[in-house]
Computed example of a mutant assay.
Amino acid sequence: MKLLSPAKLNLFFRILGKRSDGYHDISSLHQTIDLFDTITIRPSAGDSFSCTHPDVPKGTDNLILHAVHLFRKTTGKLQPVSIHLEKVIPLESGLGGASSNAATILWGLNELTRRPLSLTQLKLLGRKLGADVPFFFSLGTAHCTGIGELIEDLPALPEQKVFLAVPEFGLSTKEVYQKVDMQALSDRLPEELLSQWRKGEAVCVNDLESAAFSIRPELRSFKEKLQTMPFEQVSMTGSGSAFFCLGFSDVPENLKGQLAKFHSRKQDSWY
């Protein structure tokens, strides 16, 4: 079984408060795009995992392996599998690659074992793996709240081109959140931002940008350079380090990056 594992964008990302457990309440419009890792899952005589990217962990820090363990513990389905990950989504970029991989594995194992779990149950399993994992069980467009794990499915947004610009370094999500200044957040209401997007008006806000800039000051000039280009919107996605650009016809030839577009999945199938 070969499955695509999509990247996501945070079209807006607002921090609403800090909780007593140290996590932050957020409001974010998540959107999948057609930038994919590819995961191959095969029944096997013994478990194995391989990956095309040398920096993807192969031990206890690997979210794919956690997903396999959690699925087996929940369902009792113990068939050994061979898993190969063709990694395309940049690491530590805010594009959700690891969370997408975990969701894709849960979906794939459920299909291989004749669907012992419902979609709702898969989402609940995803929560145990990470706040972003449940989103990928949406159809590709969702308003995410709580710490990101509460998913409100939304109708697909109009197809839109995206230019992705990714620095040569990544950022730790944990470190970025630790640097958030609660006094320096946007005052834009999530309800208004969501309403504007639903009307086809792209308004990008990310409350994690200033924290990311404090860790890697060169990110600010990276964004400022993009803002001199013919883009209507430039915003960091998630905790960075990637930026996405919207509202353009052509991209300057000398600008390093990748073109993508909004992408959705169909009910009862994967991406």
Rank of each mutant, 00 (worst) to 15 (best):
G96I: 05
G97S: 09
L63D: 09
I105W: 06
H53Y: 05
F135W: 04
I39P: 12
L85D: 13
A103S: 07
V88I: 11
V162N: 03
R42L: 14
K87P: 14
L157Y: 14
S50R: 13
L109S: 01
L70Y: 03
E159N: 13
P116S: 02
P43F: 09
G146R: 01
G146Y: 03
L65V: 00
K128A: 11
K123E: 12
F137M: 00
N110S: 02
H69W: 10
K123A: 07
S93G: 09
C144T: 13
T141A: 02
A142W: 05
P134M: 02
P54M: 13
L150Y: 08
T113I: 07
L91N: 06
A131E: 01
I147T: 11
L157I: 02
G108L: 02
L139D: 12
F71D: 12
G76V: 01
C51A: 14
P80N: 08
L95M: 11
E111G: 06
I64F: 11
P158L: 08
F137P: 02
I39W: 01
D153R: 14
E86I: 06
E159A: 10
I147P: 00
L117K: 04
K73L: 11
S138Y: 01
R114E: 13
E149I: 00
S138Q: 00
P155T: 07
R127H: 04
V162I: 14
F136W: 00
